[in-house]
Amino acid sequence: MISKMNHVSIFVLDQDSAFNFYVNTLGFNVHTDAAMGPGMRWLTVTPPEQPDLEISLMAIDEGMMFDKEAAEQMRGLVRKGTFGFGVFECNDLLATYEELKAKGVEFTKAPKKEFYGFEALFKDDSGNWFSLGEKEK
């Protein structure tokens, strides 16, 4: 029986920029930042209240995972905002929205009460989009 998820990947265009976005803007914690050889880096972050879920900020490099053409296609898709990688949760959506907007985060949907909950949508620095919801109080 599967009990939980402990790693998930987000493909990013630039790991330095992603580090800045996820750590300095969103306030996530760095879990592991390991140099893996020239130009290669294993970088994972965790949401502040979920230290056992490592989010791998995965560079789209040409290599075993992507050949040159696939890497280029993938970068284009990420840049276009094709991928929605998940739903984040916060204690108070209006306050979090106001703070992140003040820090320059791009929201594609302002907080709105939907039948399934209170939700906003934002993009990371690469173009990946996320839903941001409010914890039920």
């Binding site: 592991t32 390991a34 893996m36 290669m40 294993w42 290599g63 075993m64 995972m65």
Partner: peptide
């Protein structure tokens, strides 16, 4: 470093 990376990711990356 490989002690801190799930093998599936390391393998995919060629590490």
């Amino acid at each position: 470093p490989l002690n801190f990376i799930p093998n599936c990711f390391a393998e995919k990356k060629g590490w």
